[in-house]
Structure formats: C-alpha cells, structure tokens
Simulated scan of single mutants.
Amino acid sequence: MTALDAADRDLLIRELGRPPRGVVGVAYRCDHGVPAVVRTAPRLEDGTPFPTTYYLCCSVLAAAVSRMESEGLMREMTERLEHDEDLARAYRAAHEAYLADRLELGDLGTRVSAGGMPDRVKCLHVLVAHSLGVGRGVNPLGDEAVDRLDEYFRGAKSCARLA
C-alpha cells in the first residue's frame, strides 16, 4: 500500500466523480497509473460505518466488472459455493482475511465483511478490489473474476494484472 498524494486524489476525483472518502492508502494501481483500488477506513470522517475496506475506483475496471455482474456471474458463483466445499472453505478464509485487514484500521464491532462474503457473492466490485489489493491467492472468486476481465473489455486489453 502506498500513501495517497495530491495527484492521486485528483485522479480519484476524476474516476469517482466526487472526492474520495476515508482513504488510507492506494492498494493497487491499474496499468493506466490510476489508484484503481484504495484501502479505506472502517468509518468515514463523520463516523459513518464503511465496511468496504478495498474499494474499486478505476472507472474502466468498474465498468468491466459491472458487465460481469449484469451477465449473471454473481449468481453462478453463489451456486458454486453451495456445492463446492473446497471453494466455500477458501471463500470463508478470504472473508476472515478481509476482516483482519479491516481490523488493522479499526473495529466496526461486526463480523460482516463485504461483497456477500462468506456465504454468497453480492458484489463483484468488492471481490475484484480485494484480489487486486492483496494479490492472488487470498480470494478465489475475486481471482477468478480478475482472470476473466479481458472478456469484458470489449476487445481492449484489461488494465488489471495479477502476478
């Protein structure tokens, strides 16, 4: 994670269409140099709970992930979780890792993470942000979604790469 500087803040305002909230650092930069995933505090400046620790900010990536969601990938992944014990176990471990990362920044007093973890897939944006922010091998469904990004860039190459 790197610190958020003034240039990053300007890029985030452009990407989000508003000033970023609760950002504690940049967790991943896309190939365009944009802070594509930021790590956020569990509470915003006004005290509002914000459980989304890894937040996807790159508009190009977010649009591709939205296309994935619109084609039913979340439903398909949730169904697989119901029948694949190994996948479900790995996804629960991703949930625990997410909670641990958030706890480093502050305690919300809840075991709710984000994206539907640990039992379903509710938001692919969160899962992709988690995988990009922490790297391959932590969130199996986030990794899978990142691997499929090229399919959703309408002929252009994805700006996200996991090592």
Score class of each variant (00 low, 15 high):
V23E: 13
V37K: 03
E151Y: 02
Y152H: 10
H125I: 01
L162H: 00
R67H: 12
V38M: 02
G22Q: 07
S66T: 13
A88K: 11
A114M: 12
V23W: 01
R9E: 15
P49T: 09
C57F: 03
R80W: 00
A160S: 05
L87F: 03
R18F: 05
D5K: 00
P118N: 11
L162D: 07
L105N: 09
V121M: 01
R154C: 14
S59C: 01
V128C: 08
A97F: 03
T53I: 10
D107P: 09
L105T: 07
P42F: 00
Y91G: 00
A62V: 02
R43S: 02
L162P: 03
R161V: 08
A3T: 15
E15R: 01
V138N: 12
R21K: 14
T78H: 00
D147K: 03
T53S: 10
T78I: 00
D10P: 11
H32P: 02
V34F: 10
D8L: 05
S66F: 09
F153A: 15
L56F: 02
D147L: 05
E71D: 14
L141S: 06
P51V: 08
V38Y: 07
V34Y: 07
V37R: 01
L16I: 05
Y55H: 13
C123Y: 00
R154T: 08
A163R: 07
D46S: 12
V65I: 04
L73V: 14
A3F: 13
D101K: 05
G106K: 06
R111K: 15
V23Y: 04
K122R: 09
A36V: 06
K157G: 05
V37W: 05
L44S: 10
D86F: 04
T40N: 05
G109F: 08
G109H: 11
R80E: 00
I13G: 07
L149E: 05
V134I: 08
D86C: 02
T2I: 12
Y55W: 15
R18P: 12
F153P: 14
A64V: 04
L141T: 04
H95I: 01
L61Y: 01
E151S: 06
A88D: 12
E76L: 06
P19C: 00
R43K: 12
V138C: 13
V24D: 15
S66I: 09
G155L: 14
L105G: 08
A100M: 14
L132S: 06
H95S: 12
P35E: 14
P49N: 11
M68G: 05
